[in-house]
């Protein structure tokens, strides 16, 4: 296809040059756009359709248009509301811990020292560990039979007895959050470190000449440079974590008693275990709408903050 289009474009007479120059970038983009159209846009449209139908693979005779019935069911679904609260908790706890620990690591790596390359390779390694493996490893670390965590937490007086926190409804969410934080610190450390290294040295020299102390230099130079990067990274990462259901699926399957169920894991369970594609798609629409609202809210806040200063 692409080859033929190129050949045609080459043979085109001089008068049609403008068409050729218009078509050329799209020729290079076409494989990407076709793939995305077929495997993202088409399924998205099909999914929107599913949200208003009964589509149960285990129950092929119960089919047809049901209007807003799924959405009414969602409004009355206690698991949905629980999963919504859990999603907020999961997202912001993971995000804040990843960010603070990642920022700390970036500041530590932001200077030359002996063996820096090796240290960097080791502290960034968790990023390369497949997420399902990170989940399984932490599930094993929290298991009192083979893992040390329950015993340590018990010795520190944080647990009354060395039990698996993944089986404790009140504490289970900390399991996936711990795995997520461990796994996500390198991402923040790397992006923040890149931003730190892009700060021109002259800025610090100028600030020092103006008599700025260490704290003032950190506040007015480092932070001022970091804030734009941090803001966009946090915004995008929030959405990414809110969509990230792998760790919950691997570590708890949403249990015990749905106490760790988050929206993406609930959607996945509905599609994978119950094979109820209609309800899963309706839940997906709600998730999409919430993410959209969040993005608009953040952009609006940014606009207001900008005009305030």
């Amino acid at each position: 296809m692409a080859g033929r289009a190129l050949r045609l474009a080459r043979q085109a007479p001089a008068g049609r040059r403008s068409f050729r120059s218009i078509a050329e970038p799209w020729t290079y983009l076409s494989p990407t756009l076709v793939l995305i159209a077929l495997l993202m846009l088409v399924p998205l449209i099909v999914g929107i359709g599913f949200a208003f139908q009964n589509v149960q693979i285990l129950n092929p005779f119960k089919r047809g248009f049901v209007g807003l019935a799924h959405f009414q069911a969602i409004a009355n679904d206690p698991i949905f509301w629980l999963a919504l609260v859990n999603t907020l908790w999961w997202t912001f706890a993971s995000l804040i811990l990843q960010f603070l620990l990642g920022l700390g690591l970036a500041l530590l790596l932001w200077r030359e020292f002996k063996g820096k390359r090796l240290v960097q390779a080791i502290v960034f390694l968790p990023w390369a560990v497949p997420s399902f493996l990170s989940g399984l490893t932490f599930a094993w670390l929290f298991n009192p039979v083979v893992g040390p965590f329950p015993h340590w937490l018990h010795a520190l007086g944080l647990l009354a007895s060395p039990d698996n926190i993944l089986a404790d409804p009140a504490l289970a969410m900390w399991g996936p959050i711990t795995a997520n934080v461990w796994w996500g610190i390198p991402f923040f450390a790397i992006t923040i470190l890149a931003a730190l290294q892009s700060i021109p040295n002259e800025m610090y020299e100028a600030a020092a000449i103006d008599g700025a102390g260490m704290l003032a230099r950190f506040r007015h130079v480092t932070l001022a440079y970091l804030v734009p990067t941090i803001a966009i990274t946090l915004l995008l990462r929030t959405i990414w974590i809110a969509n990230f259901g792998d760790l919950v699926v691997v570590m708890t399957g949403g249990g015990p008693a749905n106490q760790t169920q988050i929206l993406p894991s609930y959607i996945f369970t509905m599609a994978f275990r119950k094979l109820d594609f209609g309800y899963a798609s309706a839940l997906s629409m709600v998730l999409l709408a919430l993410l959209f609202l969040y993005a608009i809210l953040i952009l609006e806040m940014r606009r207001r903050l900008r005009s305030a200063f």
Binding site: V46, A271, L288
Partner: peptide, 20 residues
């Protein structure tokens, strides 16, 4: 548009993809 696909919840495509 390409950036948007990056923050899109892919989990919601699992059921339609299976069906298609």
């Amino acid at each position: 548009f390409l950036l948007l696909t990056q923050i899109f919840p892919l989990v919601m495509l699992i059921a339609p993809i299976y069906r298609l």
